[in-house]
Each structure stands twice: as C-alpha cells, then as structure tokens.
Nucleic acid binder design. Structure first.
Lengths: 235, 235
DNA sequence: CATTATAATTATACCGTTATAATTCATCAA
DNA sequence: TTGATGAATTATAACGGTATAATTATAATG
C-alpha cells in the first residue's frame, strides 16, 4: 500500500479508536512528519485524502480538525456507488435472473457497445436488515466481465471484478430521479402502486475510462435515507 | 487567484471551447508545464482539481482524458450544495417569509447554538424554467449571517454571504429522504397529497467548521433529475 | 478595557528533483 | 500472425526546500 494511504488509514483508525469528537484538533503537520518519519508533502497528501473522505477539515493558519457525521442509520452516498461502508448494515441479495443476452438500445449506448455484443444481465433484490432495500437490474459488458454466476452475484459483484478479474474500477456517473412505483415494482418491493421511489441509473467505468456496468436501481422509499458529504474547496 | 486554479480554469475553458469529446486525450504534463511556465507539481494540482470536478480522468502510464456527462437537463449535485452551475437553468425564487426568531430544537442542535440565540428564518419557493422546483426553509445563525432582507433572499444568499459578509463557505452535510407530500406541501408545489418528494436536510459550514445554515428542502418530483459524479480513487 | 499593531503558529502554494509503476509501442521469435 | 520481450512514454509517489497567507496569541496603545 502507498505510504500516504497507509498514513491516512492510521490517522483514521486513531480518530475512530479514540472516538474523537467533531472539531477536535489533530496534531500539527510537523508532528505527523516525525511520527511517520516522512516528508511534509506526504503528510499533506494523506490529510487531503481524509478531507475528501469527509473525515477531517483543514483550516489554514489554524489546524486540522475532526469532521464527524451526526446521524446514524443513513446509507452513505460517496465514492464507490453505495457500496462503501455498508458494513454497518446487514445487506443481503437475492438473484432473480442471470443470463447472457443482447443489450437494449439504451444499455448499448451507455456501455458504448454495439447491440450485437453480449452482456451479462443480472436482476437482484437487495435487503437491508431484512427489509427490501431496492430492486436492481445490471448489465455488464461481457468482454470485460467475462464470467458471472449466481454464487458471485449473490455476493459483491464488484469485489469479484476487482479481485478475481483484476480490473480496476475507476469512476461512475449517477442519474437520480424521483418517481412513482408501477404495479410490478410495487409487488416486488412489497409496497403499493403509486408509492414514491428513488430511481438511479449508474454507469460504472474502469480506471481507463471504459464503461463496464450500467445499472438501474429502484429504492424502497421507506429505506431511502442517504447521507452525502460535500467538501467545497474548488471554485 | 491561485496559479493552479487559474491553470485548471484555462484547461476547463479549452475543453469547453473546443467541445472535446469523452475520452479525448489531453496534452502530456510536460506540455502543460511549458505552456503555463510552471512546475510539474502545480500542473498535477490543477489536473487533480479538474479530476475532482469530474472533468477529466487520469490514467497512469497512459495520459489525461476528457470526462463528459452524457445527459442534459439534470441538476448537478456536486460540491456547493446544488448551487453549482445552475446557470444553465433559469432559476428564480419567491420569498414567502423572512424574519428573525428563536430556533426549534432540531435547528438549534444542527446549528450548534442555544435555543435562545436568534436565527434568520427564510422560506422560499424556487422555480426552474417557470415550474416549481422546490420548497425551502432555511435557518441562518444570526451571529454569523448578521443581516438579511427580502432583496437579498430573492437572489443568491450564498453569494451575499461570500461577497458582502466576506465569510468563507467550507463544506456541507446532506441528508436525503424519499417521502410523500402532505396537503400543505402539495398545494404549494401545485401537486397532489401523497405524491413523491425528495426531502433534503443540509447543514452548511464555514471553512472554519462553524455551521451557519440549516435548511430543509422539499423537491417537486417532476423536476427532480439529479446528476452526480463519483471519482473513486480513495479506499 | 477595548482596540490596534506585532509576532508566532500553522497550513498551503509552488518549485524542482529522483524514483516508481502502469501503459503503450516497437521489436523479435516462434 | 501470434505471442513474448524489452524499450519508451507517461502519470504518480515521495523527498525536501522556500515563500506565502490565514489564523491565533501576544504586546502595545489609546
């Protein structure tokens, strides 16, 4: 692991271990430099990483402070789709369908492939703490995700892609809509037709910019509590 | 303006001016170094900024490539709340209420003040292209936002806070819920009771970590098309 | 006591360099 | 043609330094 990531991890663990409260001031840069026997720029990189992850904020001339979320029970809505840190929840999945097929037009477009090329189609229902969380339909470019089975799809497909296939997941585009459930969706989510839903289309890219997964997810509004941290800075 | 921000701006303008397509390769670092007469690290900072803004992606050993969103008509959901680049839409606001009052308990809690301290309360309806976009109730810590009036609240309150008050806006926490409209909200948004809504509570902080604005926003589901880019990296 | 000026602290910008890792491209062999 | 090998390209990691800007603490001033 890279040095600055390692340092970031250790600082994060310290924050969590000591349960440091919002606004707690961390040691100054010099201290981290000597503690980790490294250069200033590496410490800065580590802290910038933690800042992007929403764990600290830095104030020039003043110091580095702990940033904490104040509410529990929200699904974090950050870098890796939603998959980040769902470990605090009990998430399971049931695979409804899994096959190889030709993609519909919109899927082919978003995956930037021809409609004749094969894709894996996976339909799952995901549960959170025993309740239906969402209905998920995913299409994987088969020339990238060369193999899938039910066992893999029951677990984390992304872990499989990263670890077994050795592909590097890069970034993603999310498109969010608020809509009403239709009859079929309502039935599968154990809700009523016309109930609210959060509908999310996501395109996942490898780190080289190739889209490999296009997915459409319908969330149960009763479980739809999401948390998102912005970090300002730019502009 | 800082050098690396300036460079980032110019590269961004070049991308937009030339309407570079997704995947277009940008010049190599060396080129930018000589073009902008600066060091490698400054160019890297500029490009990292553009990467966080979702405009480019970098592939080690390969190059720097243009990243473009593929859909129009979505409200960007990025750093500065929603306010970023709403310039592509015609957004207006009507102020329904504006007064100084004592905060309810949840507001005092989120703004980290005592219930006896004054806050500015602003209720607005915001319109997008003539349609109701959302219903917004905001509470501003009066010891930070010392003055507000209807004229200011009709425009961008954040611009006013940044420019007139000279405060530096830092980061924010967003909590998202999908719910059903009640009678009153439905009426104000010209929708029906029971229709879906996106309900967002946001706490905005200054760059020194002080919360100055707590707001509750109810979005019209018919206008609720949001776009969000993740950048991976971390873990 | 309040206000103002000054100094100390602290994070950030920026420079320039070396080393490293991923990718791409050219070369060669089978 | 295919595959393997190695070289060139390219972004990134990491070092360490100087200069700068924001904040905070301290001292001086009225």
């Amino acid at each position: 692991m890279l040095k600055y990531q390692q340092i970031a991890n250790e600082i994060q663990q310290d924050i969590e271990k000591d349960d440091l409260q919002q606004g707690t001031k961390l040691p100054v840069l010099e201290t981290f430099m000597t503690e980790y026997k490294t250069s200033k720029s590496t410490v800065i990189k580590a802290l910038s990483l933690l800042e992007r992850k929403g764990l600290v904020y830095q104030v020039r001339g003043s110091g580095i402070f702990v940033r904490r979320r104040s509410r529990k029970g929200y699904i974090s809505f950050s870098n890796q789709g939603f998959s980040d840190e769902l470990s605090e929840f009990d998430i399971t999945a049931k695979v409804m369908e899994l096959d190889i097929r030709k993609p519909p037009e919109d899927v082919a477009f978003n995956l930037k492939i021809n409609p004749e090329e094969d894709v894996y189609y996976v339909k799952r229902i995901r549960y959170i703490n025993g309740q239906t969380l969402c209905l998920e339909e995913s299409y994987y470019n088969k020339s990238i995700v060369t193999y899938l089975n039910i066992e893999i799809a029951t677990g984390s497909i992304f872990d499989y892609i990263s670890n077994a296939l050795g592909a590097k997941i890069g970034f993603s585009d999310l498109y969010l809509h608020i809509q009403k459930l239709d009859q079929e969706e309502a039935q599968q989510l154990q809700l009523k037709k016309g109930d609210p839903k959060l509908f999310v289309e996501t395109i996942f890219y490898l780190n080289n910019g190739s889209p490999f997964d296009f997915s459409k997810v319908t969330y149960n509004y009763q479980q739809s509590q999401f948390f998102f941290q912005s970090t300002g800075h730019s502009l």
